[in-house]
């Protein structure tokens, strides 16, 4: 058995190419593992992870904070969970998707708490 879990595959792509690349993943029967958002100096970085035969592939796309991104729920239906989460916590708008429960998948006391300008406690 070869050791996979230490092998890291990260690839940066342009946000416009995202849908096309993810469609390619879908035709090759990759499994969507997760979408992770993180704040990097005024931008939000989205990492899409895919699995094929226990190997992990990650693609990164960067959007500006509070910006918009094309939804991939039409390609991978389970993505809606992550898109709703990122929409509710980071305030990224996903175009072409209906956020679960009208953008209230997470019941929060204040909107988009993880957007840098909204950070800080009461």
């Amino acid at each position: 058995m070869k050791c996979h879990y230490r092998i890291q595959n990260f690839e940066e792509i342009k946000a416009e190419d995202l849908t096309e690349i993810i469609r390619g993943f879908k035709t090759e029967k990759y499994r969507l593992c997760q979408i992770c958002a993180s704040n990097i100096e005024g931008d939000t970085e989205l990492i899409y992870s895919f699995d094929l035969d226990h190997e992990l592939f990650n693609i990164k796309a960067t959007v500006r904070n509070g910006g918009g991104m094309e939804s991939i729920t039409g390609i991978y239906q389970p993505a809606s969970i992550y898109e709703s989460e990122i929409h509710d916590l980071f305030g990224i708008e996903f175009t072409g998707s209906r956020p679960n429960r009208g953008g209230k998948f997470f019941v929060l006391s204040k909107p988009t708490p993880w957007l840098p300008e909204n950070e800080g406690g009461e």
Partner: peptide, 8 residues
């Protein structure tokens, strides 16, 4: 239709 977030 699920919704979560009660214990975030």
């Amino acid at each position: 239709v699920p919704s979560i977030g009660f214990i975030h």
